[in-house]
Design a protein around this nucleic acid. Structure first.
Length: 559
RNA sequence: UGGGGCGUCGUCAAGCGGUAAGACCCGGGUCUUUGGAAUCCGUAUUCGUAGGUUCGAAUCCUACCGCCCCAGCCA
């Protein structure tokens, strides 16, 4: 049996890990790179790539560069550069001194292009975009050589120089690789290497009016940086021959970087296409890139997701070449796993139902000391929670006609108020329409703290909050942004993806700082919104609900 | 109908000729001041289909079927 898991701390082998391990001796060191184009905000799909690239570098004592693929000035902006750097750092990765821009290499890229022309590997073409499309042929028909293909080297050299000098208009000429117009791989049918684009570049300003294309710039950049493994997504598989061609045509030193492709992340109910995300923002279907419903890293961060939960999610989903759709539950479960042992538990009622304890002395109240983390009370300490004659409990914690497996409050039934007292429901008070208005209950003073001295057991424990001292808090509940698991377009948006309610929280929540997280007993994990919270007045985002197996029972009970 | 990829449990994913890892979900038990958490047990006689090679195949061969990507002077 082949032992793949050499180091027990490493996740089990994926094909990329295997490849790298085979190459360990062939390269001075393992050098990967994360190469975003600064044309938008990073999303959960990029997190997979970041974790992969930086993770491989970390696991094999190598290095991962952060390189901006800024070869198309009209789409790019410094705003994106800064947010990408910020997001990578937030995810917990460090590029050390490996921060690069493809635009840093523009001069070298130009010189290499000149070399290609001199070697007869490239030529300047005068065909228009439309003509070039016609000459390219189709999937089933070979292309035809451009009439300019055999233009003398000296002429191409001069024209390319003039392209750089701004002699020609946008689109008038391009530099093309001379490969094979007959190739069944369309990428090899004399692909464009340089185009004229008289546009302001966010880093080089107006220094250039010709810009290299991705395939050329990427291969050369990888080689210049000494990248060992250039990991990218599956759609670039057909580009690999071109990548290798460029390195060979330029006689780049060996060992050369190798491109390895993996499947991009597809997450159910979310969109991981920069174009569509941009559209969501532009059409104001969401509040912005950092809308807590967005799958962007800024969105997830604002929602309350932790960087470590995203990292463990990326590890959990694995890396392979088959198209896959990851269930939302994986992301959510990663978050719960992370937050469960690290976050304070507090009480808050989402949908209040008033409870009046008839035998509790009127006009009085008391404070109960309740641990923030009952599983290990010493770890996070405790807080005082006011208790009184009038309380709110969760509406769903009471059923007038309980089904068989419903263990919570019902007429005549005794339950425990968490860390407080046992109460028994005596009467149900209704309004004229027959809606339940409040419950009249009695409590057993001997059960203070939630334990009965006579050993009497109750089957249910419910959370509560003092009506007199409850803190009403603006709270935003989120649902999936799309109706369909595998959304096709924006017309499938879920109109109920955002619901705003008022939650009745225990007073200690007033001090929750923006960005801080907590667990509302039974309700889920919440985070004080960074943008909307005011000092002393938090606004909660529900990050994720708790796993709720009783909701299923409820449904079955009603059926 | 050209080329490049991919098909193993509901969902991910190991496996690379020696008789189907693991994870999420799911089902059940224990425990519990939340029906949460923790913990234990169970869950693919079968690897897209059909043939073939072999003592032995998810792994090799052949054919077929299905899905994804490619005709930007985007990345």
């Amino acid at each position: 049996m082949k032992e793949h898991n050499h180091n027990s701390e490493l996740p089990v082998g994926n094909f990329i890990r295997t490849r790298i391990e085979e190459d360990l001796g062939r390269y001075p060191k393992i050098l990967t790179r994360f190469p975003p184009e600064p044309n938008g905000y990073l999303h959960i799909g990029h997190a997979k790539s970041i974790c992969l690239n930086f993770g491989m570098a970390r696991d094999y004592q190598g290095q991962c560069n952060l390189r901006f693929d800024d070869t198309n000035p009209v789409k790019e902006d410094v705003e994106y550069v800064e947010s990408i750097k910020d997001n990578v750092r937030w995810l917990g990765f460090d590029w050390n001194d490996g921060l690069f821009f493809a635009s840093d290499y523009f001069e070298k890229l130009y010189e290499f292009a000149v070399e290609l022309i001199k070697k007869g590997h490239a030529y300047v073409d005068d065909l228009s975009a439309e003509e070039m499309r016609e000459y390219r042929g189709t999937l089933t028909q070979p292309g035809q050589n451009s009439p300019w293909r055999e233009r003398p080297v000296e002429e191409s050299l001069l024209l390319f120089q003039q392209m750089r000098e701004g002699v020609f208009a946008d689109g008038a000429k391009v530099l093309r690789a001379k490969i094979d117009m007959q190739s069944p791989n369309l990428n090899m049918r004399d692909p464009v290497l340089y185009r004229i684009r008289k546009a302001y570049h966010h880093r080089t300003g107006n220094a250039w009016c010709i810009y290299p294309m991705y395939d050329y710039a990427h291969a050369v950049s990888d080689a210049l940086e000494g990248i060992s493994h250039s990991l990218c997504t599956l759609e670039f598989e057909d580009h690999r021959p071109l990548y290798d061609w460029a390195l060979e045509a330029l006689d780049m030193p060996k060992p050369r970087p190798q491109q390895i492709e993996f499947a991009r992340l597809n997450l159910e109910y979310t969109m991981t296409s920069k174009r569509k995300l941009l559209q969501l923002v532009q059409e104001k279907l969401v509040d912005g890139w950092d809308d807590p419903r967005m799958p962007t890293l800024v969105g997830l961060r604002r929602r309350g997701y932790t960087a470590s939960s995203i990292r463990s999610f990326c590890e959990r989903i694995g890396v392979a070449k088959r198209d896959s759709w990851i269930e939302m539950d994986w992301l959510e479960q990663s978050l719960r796993d992370d937050l469960n042992p690290t976050v304070k538990r507090v009480m808050a009622v989402l949908e209040p139902l008033k409870v009046v304890i008839e035998n509790y002395p009127e006009g009085t109240s008391e404070e109960l000391d309740i641990p923030y983390f009952p599983d290990e009370p010493a770890r996070m300490g405790s807080r005082k929670v006011p208790f009184g004659r009038e309380l709110y409990i969760e509406r769903s914690d009471f059923m007038e006609e309980p089904f068989k497996k419903f263990f919570r409050l019902a007429p005549g039934r005794e339950v425990r108020l968490r860390f407080a007292y046992y109460i028994t429901c005596q009467r149900v008070v209704k309004d004229e329409q027959g809606n339940i208005k409040e419950l009249v209950c009695s409590y057993d003073p001997a059960t203070k703290g939630g334990d009965s001295p006579d050993g009497r057991k109750v089957k249910g424990t419910i959370h509560w909050v003092s009506a007199a001292y409850a803190l009403p808090v603006r709270t935003r509940l989120y649902d999936r942004l799309f109706v369909n698991p595998r959304p096709e377009g924006l017309d499938e948006l879920n109109p109920e993806s955002l619901k705003e309610i008022t939650v009745y929280a225990e007073p200690s929540l007033a001090t929750l700082a923006p960005g801080q997280r907590c667990q509302f007993e039974r309700q889920g994990y919440f985070c004080a919104d960074q943008e909307l919270s005011q000092p002393g007045r938090p606004v909660f985002n529900r990050i994720v609900a708790l796993r709720d197996s009783w909701a299923k029972l409820l449904k079955e009970g009603k059926a």
